[in-house]
């Protein structure tokens, strides 16, 4: 428990910066909606005529003239990509940062099984992800209420829930990678998030690449899929399998790793 609290304290600056940045950007988008509502019908027609570009971002199936359509396109992108970067950063540095910052020697010469260290660090990352999503969701609900729109609770919960799962998946995968690294892997984490995002864009462009939706966690965070009721169980299951592999890899590798 003490390690868990220590990890939360160490990660609090990054947590608040990312949370504030995401909440601010998303709420700014929500507050822009009333002013843009009238223009969104025309914008929707414009986006609809942009072929592959429209499909890549799922805008061919969303009405950006409605609050939830607008929210899924704008805020969904911010939360999806921003949350993925945060989760990857937190996951990939969870274990590797101790060796990078030379604190591993201090930590690992205390009588703690390495498995408990991995558990404490993973738990801290997951709690931060949950906390960030909760705060962002609450502020999003509040901002939708403030602009006088009816709050679409179910759709918002589904979309935010999917984004939270995406972050959990990426954080767990990155924690697995982290156990193999000796220096910080911020570049690897950010790169993984960006690659996963691109894989989903490719999957949206052509049916031949549709299988990529099972590899990229962005495949089950698509607002258009969530709102139109596309079955996402298979994609989520594939994602959670990857998360479990990441966690198992972290325990296996860190348990027998030489700390230099």
């Amino acid at each position: 428990m003490i390690l868990f609290r220590h990890e939360l304290r160490q990660g609090r600056a990054a947590f608040w910066i990312w949370t504030a940045a995401l909440a601010l950007l998303m709420d700014a988008c929500v507050f822009l909606f009333p002013g843009m509502k009238g223009q969104m019908a025309a914008a929707g027609r414009l986006f609809g005529s942009m072929g592959g570009f429209t499909a890549a971002f799922g805008m061919d199936r969303l009405n950006v003239g409605t609050l939830i359509g607008f929210y899924c396109v704008e805020c969904g992108s911010i939360l999806g990509l921003g949350g993925a970067f945060f989760a990857c950063h937190a996951g990939v540095s969870a274990l590797a940062k101790e060796e990078r910052d030379k604190t591993a020697e201090f930590l690992l010469t205390h009588p703690l099984p390495r498995a408990r260290i991995v558990t404490g660090k993973l738990a801290a990352v997951l709690i931060q992800i949950a906390g960030m999503n909760l705060i962002v969701l609450c502020l999003a609900v509040l901002s939708v209420g403030l602009i006088g729109e009816k709050i679409p609770f179910r759709q918002l919960l589904l979309m935010h829930g999917a984004c939270c799962l995406l972050q959990v998946e990426l954080a767990c995968a990155c924690a697995g990678i982290s156990a193999f690294l000796r220096r910080g892997g911020a570049g690897i984490g950010m790169g993984l998030a960006a690659v996963m995002y691109l894989l989903n864009l490719i999957a949206n462009l052509t049916d031949r690449a549709a299988f990529l939706k099972y590899i990229s966690p962005f495949g089950y965070c698509e607002g258009a899929d969530i709102l139109t009721g596309v079955p996402l169980g298979g994609r989520i299951a594939a994602g959670m399998l990857l998360a479990c592999m990441g966690v198992a890899g972290a325990y296996w590798r860190y348990g027998k790793k030489d700390i230099r």
Partner: peptide, 30 residues
């Protein structure tokens, strides 16, 4: 490790912590 004390050649701690925090953390981990 419960019965051993170790002083490393290079000492590094987590930034932002105070000496008292480090001592309490070390004791707490034990």
């Amino acid at each position: 490790l419960e019965r051993v004390g170790y002083l490393p050649a290079e000492t590094a701690f987590w930034p932002g912590m105070r000496v008292g925090d480090v001592l309490r953390l070390s004791a707490g981990l034990r």
